[in-house]
Design a protein around this nucleic acid. Structure first.
Lengths: 192, 192
DNA sequence: CGCGACAGAATGAACGTTCGTTCTCGTATA
DNA sequence: TATACGAGAACGAACGTTCATTCTGTCGCG
């Protein structure tokens, strides 16, 4: 159990520092300090900085997907499922701003670009399938516009990403009512 | 005129290297090499790396705004103006992918966050006013949803940003027909 | 006593920036 | 026109700093 303890402390420290100061503003020595371990200890748990960064991303992504599944029923109508997922994304990241800042940085870095490329070219994993099914069934039932999946993705998540960032930076404030407005407006963008 | 030559060579080199490899993947020595000047020469034209980065951003932003104004008429109906600007943004960045990659990186860095904060808190400059007027007049005429300006911003530009990046990374391909579809879908998101 | 886990000092590479030197070219002089 | 000069422009080696990673000695537990 000791192993797990230190490992988690390191990841927690890395999350906070990288989310707030970026990959290049979070030296290994600083992460070690914040985690309460020696600099060399990190290398007992992770192969190097890159491995630490990637493993942390995978963990955060897992947590997000788990949250999105809560209260989600594949039997619901397309519109309900869309609104559920959209609002859940907003709520999750507003509650966990560090997760958002970290995941966004990862996605905008060479790491994320490689990951995205892999997923688009190779077979998609569970996370992608989860979203894809909403759009595909929606189009089959003629309630969604006939558009490529990636356009639906962009119309749905593009606005959310911008708004979450602005909220986290303190430029604006999103409450529950506004979350509903936003999710419904983005539904208007994809619906027929 | 010689002065201008070197200065522009430096900016061109910085644009290419930073757009492709990021701020931290483009050392001053590499920028100097690509520009065909000595490393020290850069410091005759720019106070330091930060100043170079910021001045380059300002220049690119100016070019984008100039392009958006082409063929734009404040007298047109809200819908026409919206579609004009949306399609123009897509076309501009597809034609100038380096500009997009650079501006996006800048916006996702401490530089851009500070800039955004300044603009939201201080008085907005011409660029902001240009967009704002479309949304404000649209709401006054009851053709747009009654939403805060920043939500309109996000609904409009959020999808475009995601799609432009995917296009530039070669994950998807946007032709003229698709550009129209996308712009109109994003109009559906903001219209009443 | 022995061994694995650990902290922190040591290492070497890479970076932004500085600075002494060299080059360029317009002007003054005869 | 030919020559000498000087000032500003340019170069690139060198510096100090910062970083990821490795090395080394120590401590605690069985």
């Amino acid at each position: 159990m000791k192993n797990t303890d230190k490992r988690e402390e390191i990841m927690r420290a890395a999350l906070e520092l990288i989310a707030e100061h970026g990959f290049h503003g979070a030296p290994m020595a600083m992460i070690a300090d914040k985690a309460g371990v020696g600099a060399g200890t990190i290398y007992r748990y992770f192969e190097g900085k890159d491995a630490l960064i990637t493993e942390l991303y995978r963990e955060l992504e897992g947590k997000l997907l788990a949250y999105l599944q809560e209260g989600y029923s594949a039997a619901d109508p397309t519109r309900e499922r869309f609104l559920h997922v959209g609002a859940a994304v907003l709520r999750y990241f507003i509650a966990s701003p560090l997760h958002f800042l970290y995941m966004e940085q990862y996605m905008n870095s060479p790491f994320g670009i490689a990951l995205k490329r892999d997923r688009l070219l190779g077979q998609s994993d569970e996370g992608d399938l989860f979203f894809k099914s909403i759009f595909e069934e929606g189009m089959a039932q003629k309630v969604l516009k006939e558009l490529p999946i990636f356009v639906h993705f962009a119309l749905t998540f593009g606005p959310l990403i911008v708004l979450i960032r602005d909220h986290i930076l303190g430029l604006i404030s999103l409450d529950d009512a506004r979350i509903m407005q936003i999710t419904e407006a983005s539904w208007d963008g994809v619906k027929r």
